[in-house]
C-alpha cells in the first residue's frame, strides 16, 4: 500500500520529467539532419551492442561549441540576465510600497487587499500581457492621454522596445514580489519601530534600520520568484519586445519552431538549465533556512 502510494507519483515524474531531460541532453549532442526526426544519430536497438557503440561514437559537444562561436546565443543569455536583473529590481521597487501599505492597512481591509493582489494571478497571463499592447502602442491609450494633457508633442515609441518588456514583466510578476514581502512585514512587531523612534530614530531611518532588515527574507524570496521565471520568459518579449529584444526563451522557441534545429534548441535548453540551477539552489536553501528559523 505504502509502496504503491510512493511509486505512482514517483514513476509519473520520472517518466514525464526526468526522462524527457535525458532525451533533451542526448539530442543536444546529436547533429542536425534532414530526416524525421530531424537529427542523427538515432539509437537502433536491433543492432545490439555494436549499434549502441556506433550511437555513442557519433555524439559530441559540437552544438555547445556552436553556442559559444555564434555571438547570438551568448548575447541572448547575457541580455536575458540583464533584463531579469533590472526587472527584478523594478518589481521590488514597485512591490515593496504596496506590500508595506497592505501590511499597515487596518486589519479588516487586509484580507480584501490580499485577495486583490492574488486575483490578477488567476486571470490569463497571455491576456494580461496583451492588455498592454493597446496601452503602449503608438496610437495607444497612454500616448493619447499624454498628448491630450500636452506633456508630449508627438507619440512616444514604447511598444516593441525593452521598456515595454520591463513594464510587462513588472506587471505580470508583481504578485510574486508582493506576497512574500507582505508575509514578512505582517509578522513584524510594531513596537520595535516605536522603540526605534523613542530612541531617537527618524521615521525614515527607523524604516531603513528596522523594517527593511526584518523583511529581508521576504525581499529575497520575492526577488528569486521574479528572477527565475523571467530569465526563460517567452511570451512577454515576443509580444511587447521588438526585433532587437534578445531573450533566450525566444531564441529557443525560434530555433525550434522556425529554424527546426532541434539539436541546437536542446543545447540552448541545457545551458539555460545549468545557468538556472544556481539561483534555484540558492532559493531552496533560503526557504529551508526560513523554515528552520520558524520551527
Amino acid at each position: 500500500m505504502r509502496r504503491l502510494l510512493i511509486a505512482v507519483p514517483f514513476l509519473w515524474l520520472l517518466a514525464l520529467f526526468i526522462v524527457p531531460f535525458a532525451i533533451v541532453f542526448k539530442i543536444s549532442l546529436s547533429d542536425l539532419a534532414v530526416a524525421i526526426p530531424p537529427y542523427t544519430p538515432t539509437l537502433d536497438i536491433a543492432e545490439g551492442w555494436a549499434g549502441l557503440k556506433a550511437f555513442f561514437a557519433e555524439l559530441d559537444f559540437e552544438n555547445y561549441i556552436w553556442l559559444t562561436e555564434d555571438d547570438l546565443y551568448w548575447k541572448a543569455y547575457l541580455s536575458s540576465f540583464k533584463i531579469a536583473v533590472i526587472s527584478t529590481l523594478l518589481t521590488l521597487l514597485v512591490g515593496y510600497p504596496i506590500a508595506y501599505g497592505i501590511a499597515r492597512a487596518p486589519q479588516e481591509w487586509r484580507a480584501m487587499l490580499f485577495m486583490l493582489v492574488i486575483l490578477p494571478f488567476w486571470t490569463s497571463f497571455l491576456i494580461r500581457v496583451y492588455s498592454w499592447m493597446g496601452i503602449l502602442s503608438q496610437e495607444g491609450y497612454l500616448n493619447q492621454v499624454l498628448l491630450w494633457i500636452g506633456v508630449i508633442n508627438e507619440p512616444l515609441i514604447i511598444l516593441n522596445t525593452n521598456i515595454a518588456v520591463y513594464i510587462g514583466i513588472v506587471y505580470t510578476y508583481l504578485p510574486f514580489m508582493i506576497l512574500p514581502i507582505y508575509a514578512a512585514l505582517e509578522k513584524l512587531d510594531i513596537s520595535l519601530l516605536e522603540a526605534a523612534e523613542d530612541l531617537g530614530c527618524s521615521r525614515f531611518s527607523a524604516f531603513w534600520l528596522v523594517t527593511v532588515p526584518l523583511s529581508k527574507q521576504g525581499i529575497i524570496a520575492g526577488s528569486f520568484l521574479v528572477f527565475i521565471p523571467t530569465i526563460g520568459e517567452f511570451v512577454i518579449p515576443s509580444l511587447l519586445g521588438g526585433s532587437r529584444t534578445l531573450m533566450i526563451g525566444k531564441v529557443l522557441w525560434e530555433e525550434f519552431f522556425s529554424n527546426r534545429d532541434w539539436p541546437v534548441a536542446s543545447a540552448v535548453a541545457v545551458v539555460l538549465l545549468l545557468i538556472l540551477i544556481i539561483p534555484i539552489v540558492l532559493f531552496q536553501r533560503n526557504e529551508q533556512k526560513q523554515r528552520e528559523a520558524n520551527q
Binding site: 520520472l14 520529467f17 524527457p20 526563460g232 525550434f256 532541434w262 536542446s266 538549465l273 531552496q284
Partner: peptide, 20 residues
C-alpha cells in the same frame, strides 16, 4: 522532482516533453 517543475522555464518543460 516535486519542486523542480514549478521553477522550470516553460520553454524547457515544453521542449523536453515534446521530444519525449
Amino acid at each position: 522532482m516535486i519542486y523542480a517543475p514549478m521553477v522550470m522555464p516553460e520553454v524547457i518543460t515544453g521542449l523536453s516533453l515534446l521530444l519525449l
